[in-house]
Amino acid sequence: MALLEIQQLSRRFGGLRAVDDVSFSVPEGIIKAVIGPNGAGKTTLFNLIAGNLPLSAGSVSFKEKRISGLKPFQIASKGISRTYQSIKLYLGMTALENVMVGCHTHSSAGFLAGMFNLPWTWKEEKQIREKSMELLSLLDIAEFADTEATSLAFGQQRAVELARALASEPELLLLDEPAAGLNIYETARLAELITKVRDRKITVLLVEHDMSLVMDISEEIVVLSFGRKIAEDTPHAIQTNREVVRIYLGEDDDA
């Protein structure tokens, strides 16, 4: 059964078709990658799925329910979490606090419970804190728990962002260029992590430029070019796909 179903999705910016009639599905429990040259519409596609951009046509369904048209926070509470190409951590908050915000969808203390510090919220807070520490440990950054997240090194910031996304216990994790700016060791570690995440029954959809990473870990690949889907296949088949090779080598014979 497909966890995420994208049907004839389009998004225009004025005359530009950033995403043009794209359809594909993400089966449950796999790692799927979206690749394509710069400007192919990958990040736009992510923003459409996560609800950050309204779509021009088509639909996005999650667990057989239409999610397009919902607000980002509603989509998040349905079980889709994400990271950003340009890291977006909360300024002025520690690494631990950043991850704790990730637990938002699975906790419930509201304004009144908070203002009156109701006893039942104490237990919830404790659980949030423990779970967040566990995730920081899982990503080897527990020692930076009380450091302001935005002052960490780049790779560590990526890890905090990933921990935050995992804290929301998503069923689908959207990773927007998770390897950007990482060195080869960090990238290898990331590959290991993503596989570990998948083993936790979390489906992963990632956008990535690093071909070795994509080919290593993903089970299916979608290739976009100028907003259109030009191929969808296994890594091996994609590597030998003539159209894909043509795009990546920049050969241009049909103007």
């Binding site: 998040a76 509470s77 951590l89 909360y90 908050m93 915000v101 938002h104």
Partner: peptide, 26 residues
């Protein structure tokens, strides 16, 4: 109390990076 609660954390997250707060379900 509010500042040190789940809501206070969410409010600071809105301050810190609004769309990322939204993406985490706030």
């Amino acid at each position: 109390n509010l500042i040190h609660s789940r809501v206070g954390r969410a409010l600071r997250a809105i301050h810190g990076a609004e769309d990322a707060a939204d993406a985490m379900g706030v």
